[in-house]
């Protein structure tokens, strides 16, 4: 099992954000967490990625295991550098004053000497040719879609084998959304495991092998993408009828 989340309970101060949720991700899968705003999707991802205070939620119970090792005592940089799990955060959070190329280079900071960086640069520029065109530009000058490409490209440059994505389609024009999701599908076919958090449930369930539905801190439904797409309650609540 790649990722096991077991009975995870999380609090922000006195507010209980997650009430003991359990789910898992297997090697090679695309798994999606869907749910309304405030359901606890981002909290779940932040807890897995061990993000530091003050934004960090506090784990009040349960466990998160990556390949059998508990993550609860692992600092967030080591989750990336040692365990090969990267996060594309909501709002992209690229380094605006750095150039596109510097953003990508920075992500290779913690990689070993034997990493084939030239190959990975080619791969990212092949996936996102726009980034190659704009490599010397300050990344704050990119359009929203290009910034999202950079955020994904940057995560790939960490050498990750497991990628978490938080609302990657947010703020993108429909054409760019579909393009991004095609790229995610291709990355998965090349061997990358994905855990995707999305508000756009239909898009996410069409892409994912399996999905979980979060509602106010609890998992209320789970199944394959097709099953959830066909589930009348999921349809009613998250797919607009």
């Amino acid at each position: 099992m790649l990722l096991e989340v077991e009975n995870l309970a999380v609090k922000y101060g006195n507010i209980q954000a997650l009430h003991g949720i359990s789910f898992h991700v297997r090697e090679g899968e695309i798994v999606t967490l869907i749910g309304a705003n405030g359901a606890g999707k981002t909290t779940t991802l932040y807890s897995i990625a061990r993000l530091a205070p003050p934004e960090a939620p506090r784990v009040a119970g349960g466990d998160i295991r990556l390949r059998g090792h508990s993550l609860l005592a692992t600092p967030p940089d080591q989750v990336v550098s040692r365990l090969g799990m990267a996060l594309v955060p909501e709002g992209r959070r690229i380094f605006g004053k750095l150039t596109v190329e510097e953003n990508l280079k920075l992500a290779t900071y913690a990689r070993g000497k034997d990493a084939d960086l030239a190959h990975d640069f080619r791969r990212v520029f092949d996936l996102f040719p726009r980034l190659a065109e704009r490599r010397a530009q300050r990344s704050e000058s990119l359009s929203g879609g290009e910034q999202q490409m950079l955020a994904v490209g940057r995560a790939l440059m960490t050498g990750c084998r497991f990628l978490l994505l938080d609302e990657p389609s947010m703020g993108l024009a429909p054409v760019l959304k579909f393009e991004l999701f095609r790229t995610l599908k291709r990355l998965n076919e090349e061997g990358l495991t994905l855990l995707l958090v999305e508000q756009n449930a239909s898009l996410a369930l069409h892409l994912a092998h399996r999905g979980y539905v979060l509602d106010t801190g609890r998992i209320v439904a789970s199944g394959t993408g097709a099953e959830l797409l066909g589930n009348p309650e999921v349809k009613k609540a998250y797919l607009g009828g």
Binding site: A49, L51, A52, E55, P75, P76, D77, Q78, V80, S81, A86, L87, P89, R93, I94, F95, G96, K97, L98, E102, K105, L106, A107, Y109, A110, R111, R154, A155, T158
Partner: peptide
Amino acid sequence: TRIGMAMRAIACDRFAVPLMGISV
């Protein structure tokens, strides 16, 4: 240098630095 880039990156967005595998 990498450490210099990391310094500038922290000035931009400290939150995102550990996501690069870099210890703040």
